[in-house]
């Protein structure tokens, strides 16, 4: 039994992998369906007058619907799964068991990697379902744009997971870590409303896939660079703080 297997079992036996997969897959199915049938749904609900206010939906909306939900409910699920893995000091006795046998780096590396892998896998399954669904129901989109856009989404998930780890180095309680992390992510998104700093914020990555599949004009290299640096710095601070923390 290694720490890597421990983390695999944490995801498997607690069925957290299933929660992630279910959430992203559900939105992967709903995205293209909503884009294709929203006018029909509204009409069947008796909202004939409202149909006129619905903009004409395109194939890109199939993906956008998925991404919109994934960035909210999906992200929330990822943060909670990450908090449950990374806030290992929340239980002092379990923490002592691990801390007296392995270094902090040895303990948290599998936790970061397995959580990120599970989140990436769940997102990928969701986007594949959304992409295929969109292609069947509406129109096949540029695969390259979807792939590159998805890499940006995954990078944002890594930022969220690293932030969860950082918050866990300040507070120990799992729900507290998750809620504070979500709060910080929302605050950062609000900071993104300031044009001068927006380009450097990881939250800019969230709009990348939408811009790519719609062929829009965008420039994300600053947000990508900043995100990579931020992840590295947050992980380093987390390790340093956890090494100094008393249990």
């Amino acid at each position: 039994m290694t720490l890597w297997r421990l983390e695999f079992l944490r995801l498997w036996r607690t069925q957290r992998w299933l929660i992630l997969l279910a959430v992203y897959s559900a939105f992967g199915i709903l995205g293209p369906l909503t884009a294709r049938y929203l006018p029909d749904i509204v009409e069947n609900l008796g909202g004939e007058e409202a149909i006129g206010s619905i903009p004409e939906l395109t194939a890109a909306d199939g993906i956008s619907q998925y991404i919109g939900n994934a960035q909210q409910i999906g992200l929330l699920a990822v943060v909670f799964v990450a908090a449950a893995a990374l806030a290992f000091d929340s239980n002092r006795e379990m923490s002592i068991f691990l801390r007296t046998k392995a270094t902090i780096t040895q303990i948290i590396t599998p936790r970061y990697v397995m959580t990120a892998a599970a989140a990436t896998l769940a997102y990928t399954v969701g986007i594949v379902i959304a992409y295929v669904g969109t292609g069947i129901l509406l129109e096949w989109l540029d695969l390259g744009a979807v792939v590159v856009g998805s890499l940006l989404q995954v990078l944002y998930l890594l930022v969220a997971i690293a932030l969860t780890g950082l918050v866990a180095s300040f507070i120990r309680n799992v729900p507290g870590v998750a809620l504070l992390t979500v709060g910080i992510l929302i605050a950062l998104a609000l900071v993104g409303l300031v044009p001068s700093v927006a380009a450097w914020l990881p939250s800019e990555l969230l709009g990348g896939i939408d811009a790519l599949i719609r062929g829009g004009d965008f420039e994300l290299w600053r947000a990508v660079l900043a995100s990579i640096v931020v992840v590295a710095v947050m992980v380093w601070i987390t390790i340093t703080r956890l090494e100094r923390r008393e249990v």
């Binding site: 039994m1 290694t2 720490l3 421990l6 079992l9 944490r10 036996r13 607690t14 239980n91 002092r92 006795e93 379990m94 002592i96 068991f97 007296t100 046998k101 392995a102």
Partner: peptide, 26 residues
């Protein structure tokens, strides 16, 4: 050096054998 707290706790989805084997591996 090994430390045993007064109320040891482990991830409750592990078996006893897995807990001991994890300790041995580490």
């Amino acid at each position: 050096v090994q430390v045993l707290p007064d109320t040891p706790q482990f991830d409750n989805w592990l078996t006893g054998r897995e807990v001991v084997d994890l300790s041995r591996t580490l």
